[in-house]
Amino acid sequence: MKLNVNGSTHEVDADPATPLLYVLRNDLELNAAKFGCGLGQCGACTVMVDGKAIFSCLTPILLLEGREIKTVEGLGTIDSPGPMQQAFIEEQAAQCGYCIPGMMMRAQALLQSKPDASDAEIQTTLEPNLCRCGTHMRILKAVKRARELMKTAAMAPASGERKV
């Protein structure tokens, strides 16, 4: 079947019952979404579908035909990181880093639909995602920074005369 991931269409040869996570990681060789529990309890596998954060470990691909899937790889690259990625780098918001892509995608979904989300909303939104290293304070800081960076990024092209 066909899957639209990070803006391009992929022909995937997999059992339609296969959870999206395995297809992303193995068939499409995308590393960011992680296996954490397979139960929807930890959020390590979080990606976006049609702008919403979902647990990819529990979402069979048969539900996803024609829908827009986005992973951390779709937010930017190591050479040209997107605002969310940039914010996590600037805040050094990782220890082992395993939970971080899931955090980023849940935060991205929030800020995309609600660019002015409050600090409290950010905290509440991240509740389904677990971090074991205790990086929570930095993750919150990074998402708040991303909120600002995303606004700047959104304004930049509109202004039309970005100084170099």
């Binding site: 193995n26 590393n31 190591i78 990181p81 780098i89 880093g97 395993y98 971080i100």
Partner: peptide, 21 residues
């Protein structure tokens, strides 16, 4: 001094044994 491993970890670079293929 920024940690050297973070950029790859936040952009989907292979970082863990789980990412080996």
């Amino acid at each position: 001094f920024a940690r050297v491993d973070i950029p790859a970890k936040v952009t989907g670079g292979p970082a863990y044994v789980q990412d080996m293929r």
